[in-house]
């Protein structure tokens, strides 16, 4: 239900088939797993034992997810804040 609401927050998006939020939620899981894996690598590189938001930075996004990079026009403004990250 949450995913459907988020999807339809975009006014261009119309009707959604019943199964679509299931697919999107799975894709989101996989994306978050990738993101955590990459951030953890940075955590290890810095010799830290606890992952924190500093390890989740533009470098992670820049290297790992080129498509998302294209959608972030100004990386200097990038913050590890989900709402800000995906606000268009």
């Amino acid at each position: 239900a949450r995913i459907k609401k988020i999807m339809q927050a975009d006014e261009d998006v119309g009707k959604i088939a019943l199964a679509v939020p299931v697919l999107v939620s799975k894709a989101l899981e996989l994306f978050l797993q990738d993101l955590c894996d990459r951030t953890y690598e940075i955590t290890l590189q810095r010799g830290a034992k606890t992952m924190n938001s500093l390890h989740l930075n533009s470098e992670t996004i820049y290297n790992g997810f080129p498509i998302i990079r294209e959608r972030i026009k100004d990386l200097q403004d990038f913050q590890p804040n989900w709402l800000i990250m995906y606000r268009k």
Binding site: I3, I6, M7, Q8, A9, D10, D12, V13, G14, V20, V24, A27, L28, F31, I67, I68, R71, Y86, K88
Partner: peptide, 10 residues
């Protein structure tokens, strides 16, 4: 991410 996939799907 959801909005990204949504708009592309659209």
């Amino acid at each position: 991410f959801i909005n990204l996939v949504s708009s592309e799907s659209n």
